[in-house]
Simulated scan of single mutants.
Amino acid sequence: MLHSRRQFFQASALGTAMYAVSSSPTDAAKGPRTAPALELESPSATAFKRLSHRARRALRFAIDEASETDGGMVDSGFLLIGLAAEAEYSGASWLSNLGLTLDDLCAVSQRILSRQPQTTGTRLPISQAARCCVVDGIAEAGLMGYQKAEPEHLLLGILQNPDADANLILHEMWIETASLESEALASLPTWGSVHHRFG
């Protein structure tokens, strides 16, 4: 979309950012929402519990963006946008340090993600590529001693899946993998680490 995405994601965060991920399907049907509920089947549902509050918010943003732009599914490109939106919302430094803006990222992704087939129904499916990025990010968090995966870990998960649409977007924007990895690592909060908490 051509207008600033910052306002859209701020409204999403204030109104419905955590609604679908904190409500049961029965509860979600009782009230309005701005995007379809997040649908994760087992074993992904178990992995989803290992995401931090910030990472869950990033997924909510990804769902909202896919819904707002009539995306056929929540693919890795929308996951990347969700992570960027969360970075702007929480003040994480990796986005600005790379010279990226949320609006530019949305503009480039809209061209690439427009190839997706459209789906019908009240829930947007999560693509296999996006699931792999999330699961790989969670695994990376565990290897680094974090109890829960942060958005920066999900960025690292994206980088481990070079065929994902998110990496096509990064390539289109001339963002080097090594630069993004370095910024993601530098932006990680130390308070999320098991080693930080328990020495």
Rank of each mutant, 00 (worst) to 15 (best):
R54Q: 13
D165Y: 06
T122M: 09
D70A: 11
K49T: 14
H3Q: 13
Y89W: 08
Y146I: 03
S22A: 12
S23V: 08
S187F: 02
T101N: 04
P32L: 11
R57L: 15
K49W: 02
C133E: 00
G137T: 02
A164N: 06
T122V: 13
E86A: 06
A37S: 10
D103A: 05
G192A: 09
V194E: 14
F78H: 15
P189M: 08
L102F: 12
S24V: 05
D64L: 05
E150K: 01
L156F: 07
T177R: 14
E88F: 02
E181I: 00
S93P: 03
H195F: 14
S114M: 11
T16D: 10
G192T: 03
G192M: 10
E176A: 14
T101K: 01
A186W: 03
P189N: 09
I112F: 03
E65N: 06
K30E: 13
L80Y: 07
A29R: 12
L154E: 12
A107R: 12
L168N: 11
V134F: 09
G142C: 05
R57V: 07
L159A: 02
A87K: 02
Q10W: 13
P43G: 07
Y146K: 00
H153N: 02
D64Y: 06
P36I: 09
Q118K: 11
E39P: 00
M18C: 15
D27I: 09
L100H: 04
A35L: 01
A28W: 04
L14P: 01
V108E: 15
D163H: 07
L40K: 00
D103H: 04
R131G: 03
K49C: 13
S52W: 09
S193Y: 05
R57F: 10
T101W: 05
A37G: 07
G199E: 14
R115T: 14
P25I: 07
M1S: 12
I81P: 03
L188P: 00
R115M: 13
G77C: 08
L185C: 06
S44Q: 01
T34P: 00
K148F: 15
I138Q: 09
F48M: 06
R50C: 10
G77F: 08
H171P: 00
S23M: 11
L113T: 01
T119A: 08
T26E: 15
A35V: 05
R197T: 04
I175F: 01
H195P: 00
S193V: 03
I158A: 11
E150D: 08
L180N: 01
G82P: 02
L156I: 12
S12V: 15
A107E: 14
T122H: 09
S76F: 02
T190V: 06
G121D: 09
V74P: 01
D104S: 14
S76K: 07
L113N: 08
N167T: 09
A66P: 00
L154W: 11
V134D: 01
A13Y: 03
R111K: 13
C132Y: 09
R33V: 14
R123A: 10
N167K: 06
V135E: 10
H153D: 02
S96E: 11
L105A: 08
A35F: 15
L59I: 12
P32C: 10
Q110K: 14
R50D: 15
I112M: 08
E86V: 00
H153E: 03
G137W: 15
I158W: 01
L154S: 04
T101A: 02
